[in-house]
């Protein structure tokens, strides 16, 4: 019963969308030779995505597969034009076979080989070579991340902590004290070698309060940002597509 109702709803919406589109194109409210078809397609995909709010349905599945496929195609193009073509093809392969006035960059061979090793996962005998690539990536990632982490995360956050507690004004001093208490108590919460009991437990609870207040503020801020995204989509549907609002 429910399934047939869903099918009716789906058909009704599709027919309504089709009629609206035809009417808008016929009356010239949307320019068929200009961006009219693009606007209708964007509106259709937007509505297909929002249909998931009701429940999973064939229209959403079409939009989902379209989205994933387009993104994959886009990624491949980006990888080719931004990485493989300038860094490997034009830098190494073309100068080897053709006089371009540039010497081939043989240093590219090592990362190219590491990249090709990834494909050896398809071979049962040579798949172990792909681990060289993984080891290189993980090792390099950790090696680059750790020193930057000390500078960008640790020291940058320590720097404002060494400000005088007394700032000259009552509220300024309270603010500095709050920051100090917040940082110390949150650090206490992240002690894993000590049981959260007694004094440490008490300080950790204060730390949790600070964390939750910060998360609440962040939540509200982000929700407002999401609201503005929703408003943007609604404006597109009501202004660009239907022309109800100006």
């Amino acid at each position: 019963m429910n399934k047939s109702r869903d099918i009716y709803i789906l058909f009704f919406i599709l027919i309504a969308f089709f009629i609206v589109s035809v009417v808008y194109l016929s009356f010239g409210w949307l320019d068929i030779w200009g961006d009219g078809l693009g606007i209708i397609t964007a509106a259709a995909v937007t509505l297909a995505m929002y249909s998931f709010l009701y429940k999973d349905n064939p229209v959403f599945k079409i939009a989902e597969n379209l989205f994933v496929g387009v993104a994959m195609g886009y990624s491949i193009i980006i990888v080719w034009f931004n990485i493989l073509k300038p860094d490997v093809f034009e830098a190494l392969i073309v100068p080897v076979f053709k006089d371009t006035g540039k010497a081939p960059q043989y240093t590219v061979i090592v990362p190219t080989l590491l990249g090709l090793f990834m494909f050896l996962r398809f071979s049962s005998k040579l798949s172990w070579l792909s681990r060289w690539s993984f080891a290189f990536i993980v090792g390099m990632g950790a090696g680059i991340a750790i020193p930057n982490f000390i500078n960008a995360i640790l020291l940058r956050q320590l720097e404002p902590m060494f400000a005088p507690l007394y700032t000259g004004s009552f509220w300024g001093t309270i603010n500095t004290l709050l920051v100090l208490i917040g940082v110390v108590s949150v650090l206490f919460y992240f002690f894993f070698s000590l049981e959260h009991k007694g004094v440490i437990g008490g300080v950790s609870v204060i730390g949790i309060w600070f964390l939750m207040i910060a998360f609440g503020a962040s939540f509200g801020y982000t929700v407002m940002a999401r609201m503005s995204l929703l408003i943007g989509r609604m404006q597109f549907l009501l202004k660009d597509w239907l022309g109800i609002i100006q």
């Binding site: 320590l158 507690l165 100090l180 206490f188 002690f191």
Partner: peptide, 23 residues
């Protein structure tokens, strides 16, 4: 993990001591 905890303890000490000295 134990080393990280010790490092955090050192940092807490440095922060409190540093704030006191800055004051």
């Amino acid at each position: 993990l134990r080393a990280q905890d010790i490092a955090k303890g050192i940092l807490i000490g440095v922060i409190v001591f540093g704030a006191f000295l800055a004051t």
